[in-house]
Simulated scan of single mutants.
Amino acid sequence: MKDEAPTFEAINLLGLILEKTESEEEKELLFTAAEALRFIETTGQQYDFVDYRQDLKTEGPQMVIASFATRDEAEAWLKNHPKPPCRAAVLIADKYHTVYYRRDTNDRTMPSTPGIEFHLEEMMKDGRPPPPAATFDTREQARAWFYSLPERPSQAVIQLGGEPYLAAYHRNIDHLAFHPFSLVEGLKEWRKKMEQERTPEDPEPQS
């Protein structure tokens, strides 16, 4: 699997570096990195690791591990999951949420997160989205077009119902999400709220 998941070669390289490292703290960090790669090998997650590395090379938004149509579906999944992820992103109605799980207390939470808004903002030039690759009236039309492409990109800007959208393809779960660029407007309110919540410094006493 050298060409697909060179974890074995990476483990050997870490071992060579470990032999030349004198710092005990750095040795522990290198050992932890090697053990993480061994975990991938021994649990048979080489292909998942390959897909993860491939996603890192794309310009698409943050990777997610699951997608749900409703909050109730997501809550049921999290409640009944025998071994939920410690921390991972999921989509609920194409909106980003982060799963948090504490094994010692069995606490399971899933708050919404604004990561996609920042991604959309970075894509906007001069405050405007890139030109759309195609225009559609419905999501069904957009989905049919996207899945008909010879190679599905990680993302594509489209016009949907008269508004600019980002169509983001999550290859690991075969899900096409639609994110309106209008979500960026929410960042203005969020930043304004953060600014208002900042406690001003106490004025210096007058002498």
Rank of each mutant, 00 (worst) to 15 (best):
H81I: 05
G115M: 11
A134Y: 01
L14M: 12
Q141W: 01
F146E: 06
T199A: 05
L29W: 09
A133P: 02
L56W: 05
E73C: 03
L14C: 07
R38N: 12
H179K: 03
C86Y: 10
E73V: 02
E24N: 12
P114Q: 08
A33E: 10
A66W: 01
T113N: 10
N12E: 15
K83S: 13
Q54D: 13
V90G: 02
L29M: 13
L37M: 11
Y52D: 15
F181P: 01
T43V: 09
E26M: 15
T105H: 01
A74I: 08
S154K: 03
Y101C: 07
I40K: 07
T135I: 05
A34G: 13
N172E: 15
N106E: 12
F31G: 09
L29T: 10
D3E: 14
N80P: 00
Y165V: 12
I40A: 11
K125E: 06
E117M: 12
K2F: 06
E28G: 03
R139K: 14
D137F: 01
R143I: 03
D202I: 07
R198F: 02
A33C: 12
Y47T: 12
K57V: 05
T21I: 07
T7I: 15
G115Q: 06
L13F: 09
K188Y: 04
F49Q: 14
D174A: 11
A89H: 04
A36D: 13
F8M: 06
L18S: 07
P180M: 08
G115C: 08
G162S: 13
L30Q: 10
G15D: 11
D48G: 07
Q54Y: 05
P200K: 02
E122D: 13
R152N: 08
R71A: 10
S23F: 10
G60H: 07
E189Y: 01
Q196I: 03
F8Y: 03
R71Q: 11
D104C: 01
G15V: 05
E75R: 09
D72T: 09
L78T: 04
Y96P: 00
L56Y: 05
L13C: 10
I11P: 00
E22I: 11
F136Y: 06
D48S: 14
A177I: 07
P130H: 01
R198Q: 13
E189L: 08
L13S: 10
D55Y: 07
T58S: 13
L91N: 04
E41A: 08
A168L: 05
E121Q: 14
T98H: 00
G15I: 04
E189Q: 06
F31R: 15
Q54P: 00
Y52A: 15
D72H: 06
M123G: 11
L166S: 06
M63G: 02
V184N: 01
I40E: 10
D137R: 12
S154L: 01
E26G: 02
D126W: 00
E28D: 11
I40W: 05
L16G: 02
A66I: 04
Y96M: 11
G44T: 06
D3K: 14
Y52I: 10
M194W: 07
K27R: 15
F118I: 06
E22L: 14
D72G: 00
T70A: 03
A177W: 05
T199I: 13
P84D: 12
E201M: 08
A168T: 03
Q46L: 15
Y100M: 09
L29S: 11
